[in-house]
Amino acid sequence: MSNDKALLLNPQKVALITKRFALQIVENHKSFENVAILGLQPRGIDLARCVKNEVSNLVGVDLKFGELDHTFFRDDIGRGEIHIPKPSKIEFSTEGMNIIIIDDVLFTGRSVRAAIDAILRYGRPSRIELMVLVERIFERELPIKPDYKGISIDSRKVNQKVKVDWQNDDNVNVWLLNQDKV
């Protein structure tokens, strides 16, 4: 099996997108009291934390922040792939909040569906938005689309994968991996 990869985003572009996300949050929300950011375990946490920090730098407001694991709400438990849960850390009620879910990649939409179910057990938010670094526009399996996206790509399901390589906050590369069939 041979692999090749193409660079989708370099660290400078990821930094720009993070700043853009922060500006969009500021632009779209009149008040920040009821706004909370939830990073999806495991790979949405770093991006969510960076966006929260950018918002704080821009307007001096610390948004409520949490880490959400949706494993127990997946629709494929016992269907082959193994899912090990990670901790959720949400120390506030989501009742009446504007929640922004942040993940690295949106593909089939099933993780986001599970995440919405997971959020609802902490209360009934007034609104849930979705922010992703990379949107894969084909092969969506549920009617879910992002409110904020870094880039959109038309990757195929069978032999392509998007990998977000988060070494540290200043060194993030996003790759498109092409995996030939065996």
């Binding site: 997946r74 901790p87 902490y122």
Partner: peptide
């Protein structure tokens, strides 16, 4: 250790207002 770390997450779940998950709905 895997059972314990998974149970940690369920302990957290049991503290939330909604204590149910649909994880084993097929079982």
């Amino acid at each position: 250790d895997l059972i314990f770390s998974t149970a940690d997450n369920f302990l957290d779940l049991l503290q939330a207002p909604v204590k149910k998950t649909p994880a084993l709905r097929d079982i």
